[in-house]
Design a protein around this nucleic acid. Sequence first.
DNA 1: TCAAATGTTTTTTATGATTTCAAACCTGCC
DNA 2: GGCAGGTTTGAAATCATAAAAAACATTTGA
Lengths: 300, 300
Amino acid sequence: MARSDKRYREAYNHLLDFCAGLNVGDAIPSEKVLCEEMAVSRTVVRRCLGGFEENGLISWEGRDKRLLRLPQKSDRLDELDGGLSSDDLEQRFFDWILRFDVAADTPLSVAELSRTFNVPQHELKEFLAGLSRFGLVTRRRQGGWMLRGFTKDFAVELSDFRSVLELNAIAHLVEAPVDHPIWGQLKQLRAQHDDLARRIDRDFHEFSKLDEAFHRAINSVVANRFTREFQKVISLIFHYHYLWNKAEEKQRNAAAIEEHLAIIDALEARDEGAALKAARAHLRTSKTTLLSSLRYHELG
Amino acid sequence: MARSDKRYREAYNHLLDFCAGLNVGDAIPSEKVLCEEMAVSRTVVRRCLGGFEENGLISWEGRDKRLLRLPQKSDRLDELDGGLSSDDLEQRFFDWILRFDVAADTPLSVAELSRTFNVPQHELKEFLAGLSRFGLVTRRRQGGWMLRGFTKDFAVELSDFRSVLELNAIAHLVEAPVDHPIWGQLKQLRAQHDDLARRIDRDFHEFSKLDEAFHRAINSVVANRFTREFQKVISLIFHYHYLWNKAEEKQRNAAAIEEHLAIIDALEARDEGAALKAARAHLRTSKTTLLSSLRYHELG
DNA sequence: TCAAATGTTTTTTATGATTTCAAACCTGCC
DNA sequence: GGCAGGTTTGAAATCATAAAAAACATTTGA
C-alpha cells in the first residue's frame, strides 16, 4: 500500500555489479559519486549501503566504506517485473482497438484495460487524458471514459489533417538544401520501392513498413514538435488500418508504390507543383482506402 | 480515503426539489424514472430514498413509495463546494505560466500546483499528461514534470504550425458557399475593425479580444477536431503574450487591424492568391511580435 | 405470463493514506 | 572552506477503500 521500492532494488543490484569490479579491501566512492553512477538520489544510495553493511558486504563508518567480500549471486534482490509492459502502452492500446475493431462510443473501463494491459490504473488514466486532447476519447458524465473512435467523420478529419501537414512538409522539402540528409534517404527509399515493386506479387505485405518509413522521412524535414506528436498518432492509425484492410491488398500496394515513386521523382526534380500534385493524389487514395476499410468493417 | 459523496448530496437535493412539486400522499415514480430525472445511477437514487424514509419524508414499502410531507429548507444537505475551481484549470494554468513568465525547463511540482490551483493532484496529473501530447511539458526521469516552455524554438515552431493551419483555413474559406455563416461573420468583423480603427488612440487595448475573434472565425470553417484542439492552445498562448507585450502596443494593433482588413478584402473578393498573401504577411508579423515579446522578457 | 420494478451482488471509479524517494539543509572533518 | 556525511522535509508513486455504477436475480401485478 504505497509506492514500490523497485528503484531501490534496481539500484541495489546495480551497486552489486559495481562492487564486483573492485577488490576486497578497496574503498567505496562517495555517496555523491554513486548517485551519479546509478542515476538515483542519495537517499536510495544510503539505503543500499545500509543493506550492504547489514549483509556484511561492506564496512561503513563515517566516510570510510570498504568492501569486505565480493558479492555473490545470492546477494541479488529479485526485481519484480512490473514496468516491462507499461513502456509502449500506446502501441498496444491502438493495436487492441484496431485488432478487435472496437466500435465507436464503446465505454472504456480503466479497471479492465488495466488488467488486459497489465498497467497500473493511474497510468491508463493519464494515457486516456492524453488521447482526449486529440479527441480520440472523452470522459463520460457518470465517470469513466468512452472511445469516440473510428467513425467516418473521424477518418475524414484525420485524413484531412494529415494532408495539411504532409503537403506542408512537401513544400518544405523542395526547398531543402542539397546537403540535407533527406536527399540521401529519398534515394534509398526509391531503391527500396523499386526493389519491392519487382517482387510485389509475393512480398506485398512488406509495403506497410515501407509506407511508414516513406511518410516519416517526408515529415522529418519539418522540425516541429507539434507536427511530430501528431504524426505519431496518425501513422499508427493508418498503419493498422492498412494492415487490417485485406481487400485487394496487392493491387493497392502496387499502386501506392507507383504513387510514392511519382512523389520522389517530382521532389528530386525540385518541382514543387508536380510534387504537391502527386502528393495530393496519393493522400486522396489513402483517404479512400481508410474510409473503405471502415465500411468493410461495418458490413463485416 | 475514498471518493466523496458529492453526487449523492446533489441528487438528494435534486430529489427534494422534485418532491416539492408533488402533493402529500402522491406516489413517487419508479427508481428508474428517478435515475433518468437526476442523471445518476439507481444506487444513488435508492440511497436518497433511504434517507428520505429515515427523515419521514416518504413511506417506502416494496414498490409503494408515497410522499408523507412536503420538504423543508432544513431537509437539504449542504453541498461541499469542491469542483468550482477545477473547471477551467487549463485557462488558469496558462494564465499562471504566462503571467509569472515561468521559465522553460522549470520543474513543475504536482503537489505545489495542486495547492495553488486548489485542484486534486490526480486531476493535475491528467492535465499535464494531456499537455505532454502537445510537447508543452515532459516527464522527468526522476519523477515529476517539467515545463518545456516558452523558448525561442517553441515560439517559432508554434507560429509555424499556426501558419500551416491558418493558411489551410483561408484556402478552405474562399471555397465556402455564399450562404455559409462565415460571410456574415466577416462582414460584422469588418465593421468592428473599422470601428476600433477610428478610436484606436484610446481603445487600443480592445484589439486583443478582436484578434482572437477574427482568428477563431477564420479557423471555424475547417470542421476538424484536431485543428480545433490545437487552436485552443495556440490562441491562448498568443492571446496572453500579446497582452503581455506592451512595447509599442498601439502601433502594433493599428497595423494588425489593417492587416486583418486586407485579409477580409481578399476573402470577400474570393481572391485566393491575395488572401493567402495577406494572411502570410499577417502571420509573419504575429510571429515577429511573439518572438520580440520573448526577447523582451529575457532582458527584463 | 412476462415485463417492469425492486432487491442483491459484483465491479469500477474516485480519492486520500501511506511509503518510498528526492532534495534541501545542517554539521563536521580534513 | 569545500566536500562528504548525517538529518529533515516535502513530493511522487501506488494502493486500499468508500461511493457509485452496472450486472444480475427476484418479485410483483396487470
